[in-house]
Design a protein around this nucleic acid. Structure first.
Lengths: 222, 222
DNA sequence: GTCTATAACCAGATAGAC
DNA sequence: GTCTATCTGGTTATAGAC
C-alpha cells in the first residue's frame, strides 16, 4: 500500500513502451506501427517515448534486442541431455516446440518488418542480423550436440538450416492461422533421415550403423 | 517506327504500375511502399495510379492477384509424369525449385505485408487467403499424385504442410541473403522418410514395402 | 521523467483541365 | 487516360513547462 514512491517509474514506463511496441510491431510490422499507436496503447505521450528511445528506429532496435535475449534464453541449451541420439533429439524437439509456442514474437518481428535490408538505420540492420545469426549458431551447435557431429560441421549446418527454415515457415503459417504449432513429429522423422542419409556417426547411440536408412541411400538414392 | 498511336497505352501504363508496385511492395512491404514511391519509380503521376486502381489497397490486390496467377502457372502440374515415386518426386522437386528461383515475388508479397489480417480491406484479406489457399491445394494435390495418396489425404496434407513451410522458411532466408535457393536434396530425403514413416502405398513404385524405413518406424519409432 | 502543444513534413486521395 | 495542383489528415519528432 505504499503510495507509489516509484523510484523506478522510468524503468517501468520503458518496459511498458517496449511491451506495447513489441506487440504492435509483431502484429502490423515496423512500417505500419506508428508512434501514435504505441502512445495510445500504452498511455504515455509520444514525447515520453522519444525521451526513452530517441527515434522509431531506436524503439525497434530495443524491441528486437529484448526479443532476441528472451528467445535465446528460452531455447534449449546446446548440450542437450540424453544417452543416445533418440533421447537427445526428443528432448531437443520438445524444448524447441515449447519455445516456439511460448515466444510468438521473436520470428514475427524478424518477418514483419517490411524493411529488413534497405533504407533501415544501420543499428536496426545490425540488430536484425545479430538476431538471425544468434539463431543460426544456436541451431547448428545444438544439433551438432544432439547428433554428435563435431567432425561433420557441414552436416550440422544442413540440419540447422533445415530446422530453422521449417520453423520460420511455421511462423509464417501461424501468422495466417493463429494456433499453428511447430510439428515436431515430422521434423523428427526428417532429421533422423537426413542424419542417416549423411551416415552421421550417431555417437552415443546404440550402434554405429543404426541410423542408416534404406530409403534415402538405397533404392531411391541420388 | 509508327509514332505511338498507342491504342493500348492504358494497358501498358497499368502493367508498368503493377510491375513497379510488385517490385517495391515485395521489397519494402505494403505499409512502407507509398504511392509517391510508385509514382516516382514508374513515371506516372499519382492520379493516374488512382485512376487505374482506385486505392492503395486496390493496387495491392491487383499485384497479389497477378503474382498468384503467375506463380500457379509456373508450378508443376498436379499430375507429375513418372513411372514410380522416385521419378515423379524428382520431377516434382526440380520444377518446384525452378519456380521458387524464378518467382521471388510471390512469397515475399505474402510475407512482406505487415498487414495480413488486421485493418486491411476485405478485398485484400480475401486475396491474401485466396493466394495462400491456392498454394495449399496445389501442394496437397501434387504430392498426393507423386506418392499415390488418394486414399491417405491426411498424409498428403502433412507432406504438403511440410513442403510449404520449408519453402516459406527458405523464402524468409532469401529475404536476408539474396541468392538462397530451395534445397531440394534434403527435402527429398525428408519427404521419402515421411512417406515411409506413414507406410505410404507408393503406388506405381517397384514394390509395396519399398518405402518402409527402419529408422523412422523401428529403433527410433515413437 | 512526464506532460501539453505544436512544428514540419509526407501520406493517401481528389478536382478538374486537357 | 493523363496531367497539374491541391486538400486533409496522420506521421515523426521537438520545445518547453512542470
Amino acid at each position: 500500500m505504499t503510495q507509489a514512491p516509484a523510484p523506478d517509474r522510468g524503468a517501468r514506463s520503458r518496459d511498458a513502451i517496449l511491451d506495447t511496441a513489441a506487440e504492435l510491431m509483431s502484429r502490423y510490422g515496423y512500417a505500419a506501427t506508428s508512434i501514435s499507436m504505441i502512445s495510445a496503447e500504452c498511455g504515455l505521450p509520444p514525447s515520453s517515448i522519444y525521451w526513452h528511445f530517441g527515434s522509431k528506429d531506436g524503439i525497434y532496435v530495443a524491441v528486437l534486442e529484448r526479443a532476441r535475449i528472451e528467445l535465446l534464453a528460452a531455447l534449449p541449451p546446446v548440450e542437450v541431455p540424453g544417452a543416445d541420439v533418440a533421447q537427445r533429439l526428443d528432448a531437443f524437439l520438445a524444448e524447441v516446440e515449447d519455445a516456439f509456442r511460448r515466444h510468438p514474437h521473436g520470428l514475427k518481428l524478424l518477418l514483419g518488418l517490411g524493411m529488413v535490408q534497405q533504407d533501415a538505420s544501420a543499428a536496426a540492420v545490425a540488430e536484425v542480423h545479430h538476431y538471425r545469426d544468434a539463431l543460426v549458431v544456436w541451431a547448428r551447435d545444438a544439433l551438432s550436440a544432439v547428433f554428435g557431429l563435431d567432425d561433420r560441421p557441414e552436416v550440422a549446418d544442413e540440419l540447422a538450416r533445415f530446422t530453422l527454415r521449417l520453423a520460420s515457415g511455421t511462423a509464417v503459417a501461424r501468422w495466417f492461422e493463429p494456433g499453428v504449432v511447430l510439428e515436431t513429429r515430422p521434423l523428427r522423422v526428417a532429421l533422423l533421415a537426413l542424419a542417416a542419409h549423411h551416415n552421421a556417426p550417431a555417437r552415443g547411440s546404440s550402434g554405429g550403423g543404426a541410423l542408416s536408412c534404406g530409403v534415402a541411400d538405397g533404392e531411391y538414392g541420388e
